[in-house]
C-alpha cells in the first residue's frame, strides 16, 4: 500500500533512543519488537498511514537513521 508520505529508518544504525518517537506528532513511529545487531530495539514505522511528512523525526534523530519522502506527481 502506498501512502502519501514515507518514513524509512535504518534499523541497524538506530540506537533506539526514542527521540523520533517522542517528536512524531501523529503516532506514526514506535519501538520495534525485535533487536538489531547492536542489541537495541530500533524505532520502526508502526502506523505508516499516519505520517504527514513533517520531518520532525529526522530533525531529532541523533544518528542520521531517518529518510522521509513524499509522493509527487511526475512532471510532464
Amino acid at each position: 500500500m502506498e501512502y502519501k508520505n514515507k518514513v524509512e529508518i535504518d534499523q541497524e544504525r538506530c540506537k533506539g533512543c526514542g527521540l523520533c518517537i517522542d517528536a512524531c506528532p501523529t503516532g506514526t513511529l514506535g519501538f520495534s519488537e525485535g533487536f538489531n545487531a547492536k542489541g537495541y530495539h530500533p524505532a520502526a514505522v508502526v502506523n505508516p498511514e499516519k505520517c504527514i511528512g513533517c520531518g520532525f523525526c529526522y530533525q531529532m534523530c541523533p544518528d542520521v537513521c531517518i529518510t522521509v519522502s513524499t509522493l509527487e506527481k511526475a512532471k510532464a
Partner: peptide
C-alpha cells in the same frame, strides 16, 4: 507518481 526525498542525511557526513 513517485516518492521524492524530503529529508535525508547530508553529503558532508562521512
Amino acid at each position: 507518481m513517485s516518492y521524492k526525498i524530503k529529508f535525508k542525511g547530508p553529503e558532508s557526513l562521512s
